[in-house]
């Protein structure tokens, strides 16, 4: 097995951080607009998780995790094949099976990811980059700042969880 060590940051409320540290487990985020489907979300960069945590009343906390995954079970949605995955799946539904698909881009992406989580037993991690802000002026190239997220479903892949104390920030 070719092991991949993933470092991630999870921004949450102080209360949730306390509960995660106590149980050693994260709860799965679910909904119809989760970009990488139902799962546990981490940012690759501390600043992004910190921004997210700051949105919580009282400031929130950032947890640092290390996850151990098999490289073959890691799927990067930004890879050439990954980029085409959502579009091709919608093509199959619409063109080959003559359905009208009405969902938003976010809902459709969530549904594709949920298919992967439910039926592709050889995938443990989904990862992708998302733009931080909405499009303002359409340009041929997308110059918006992006942040990378990854999503796991299995808590047992997480080998360590640590609270980043305010004093750790320099």
């Amino acid at each position: 097995m070719d092991v991949l060590l993933l470092t991630g940051y999870h921004g949450t409320s102080a209360e949730n951080a306390k509960s995660i540290l106590k149980s050693g487990k994260f709860l799965l985020s679910s909904g119809t607009k989760e970009w990488l489907g139902t799962g546990i979300y981490f940012y690759r960069e501390f600043e992004d998780a910190y921004d997210w945590a700051r949105g919580n009343p009282g400031g929130g906390e950032v947890l640092h995790i290390i996850a151990e995954v098999d490289r073959d079970r890691y799927l990067d949605i930004d890879s050439p094949g990954g980029k085409l995955l959502c579009g091709k799946m919608l093509d199959i539904i619409q063109r080959d099976f003559t359905y009208v698909v009405k969902g938003t881009a976010q809902e459709n992406q969530c549904a594709v990811m949920n298919y992967i989580w439910s039926y592709c037993k050889n995938i443990d991690v989904l990862s992708a980059e998302f733009p931080v802000e909405k499009t303002k002026t359409p340009l041929l190239s997308d110059f918006r700042r992006r942040r990378r997220e990854f999503c796991l479903r299995d808590n047992s892949l997480i080998k360590s969880i640590q609270l980043i104390e305010k004093g750790d920030l320099k």
């Binding site: 359905y99 009208v100 698909v101 009405k102 949920n114």
Partner: peptide, 16 residues
């Protein structure tokens, strides 16, 4: 079955 399956995944689909 297909329509139910797609809707359960979260696709907002209507058969033509």
């Amino acid at each position: 079955e297909r329509t139910r399956f797609l809707r359960e995944l979260g696709f907002n689909v209507t058969p033509k």
